[in-house]
Simulated assay, not measured.
Amino acid sequence: MADLTTIILTKNEELNIKKCIESVKSISKRIIVMDSFSSDLTVSIAKSLGAEVYQNEFLNYGKQFQFALDNTDITTQWIFRFDADERLTEESSIEINKLCSENKNTDINGLIFKLEVNFLGRKLKHGGTYPFKKLCIFKKDHAFMETRSMDEQIVLSDGKSIEMKSISEHNDYRDLTYWISKHNWYATRAAKDYLDFENEKINYTNLDFSAKARRLLKYKIYYKMPQGIRGLTYFLYRYIIKKGFLDGKEGYYYAFLQAYWYRVLVDAKIFEAKKNNTKISDVGSLK
């Protein structure tokens, strides 16, 4: 077993939490569920599986994760930020154990985790989503979490990161209605994040390559385009250039909703805030 603590942020995740916890049990000395006062069976299910449950009011992911780091007395060398709708495979479990052990005394302080995205029951292999990469396994005291409203990243304060070879699963067992509600919530946070940083110099220095590329594309290219053509450009990029059409109807709906619904909704919320000269406040947890 790796010298690793897994942290899972939750709010009403009773459909996901069991399989999530079961998938990380074999590699985790501790499993910490940082819950935002769920009203369903999330807490009881987590406790029944041996997880430690803490609760705190949610403001944003960065602050919630940092609260977990600061208030749960973690002593393991490695920490794993894991989402309730993610699952380790047997291959990724073995690889995490191996990499944590091999790099106990090296300057490798972060592991870049790979995921496949599941949408409408289909594993997407195209459209720029496969595999999705993020730095979410890191050595304690060698990284910090950004405090942004959206697109928060774990950033190494020293050392290097390496990329895992195996690919884990991302599968939320809820329907499209929930997806739309969640992305409306995301859109508010994304609009706030853009307005917060619109006139500031964005620091890309210590981000891992994938996170840096996404942020550069967002702030240096996407947001420099006129609002009226952003959605079209985004759709063409995902569906045509990145061959999202090869994922069938699911690929079409994913690209269309990401571009013409979610990204346009973000732009509309930015437009509304500027037009009315209002600030977008922290939106709290998803209901």
Rank of each mutant, 00 (worst) to 15 (best):
N71R: 08
K63F: 07
E91I: 00
K249A: 02
K98I: 08
K224H: 05
L207K: 14
W179G: 00
I270S: 05
S39I: 08
L88F: 06
S210R: 08
E272T: 01
F37V: 02
L156I: 04
N97Q: 07
G110I: 01
Y252A: 12
G121D: 10
E13N: 10
T5K: 15
Q64P: 00
K11L: 03
Q66E: 10
G248K: 09
K125R: 15
N97G: 13
A211I: 02
A273F: 08
G284C: 03
S157V: 12
F58G: 01
G228F: 14
M145Y: 15
Y260V: 05
A68S: 06
K212D: 11
R30D: 12
T188L: 14
E52L: 05
D175A: 12
D3E: 04
C136S: 14
V53R: 03
L257Y: 13
G127M: 02
I167T: 07
R148T: 10
S26M: 00
E102L: 07
I108R: 09
K114V: 01
H183S: 06
K47H: 01
L120N: 02
E86P: 00
N203S: 13
D3I: 06
L59S: 12
F80R: 02
I167K: 11
G121T: 12
Y239V: 03
A190G: 11
V266N: 03
M1P: 14
I45C: 06
K114H: 14
K133A: 05
Y254Q: 12
S181P: 00
G62A: 07
L69G: 00
D175T: 06
T233K: 09
G50W: 05
R214M: 10
D172V: 13
I21R: 14
I167L: 02
D73R: 04
Y61A: 05
K218Y: 15
T147E: 13
E198W: 11
K114E: 03
K275R: 11
G127Y: 10
V33E: 04
L286W: 13
D151C: 09
N184V: 09
T177S: 15
T42W: 06
L217N: 09
S166C: 08
E169W: 04
E86N: 09
R263K: 13
E57H: 10
S92M: 05
F144P: 00
F119W: 09
M150N: 12
T6F: 04
I74C: 06
H126K: 07
D172M: 09
K11H: 07
F82Y: 11
T205Y: 08
L49D: 15
N71T: 14
L59C: 04
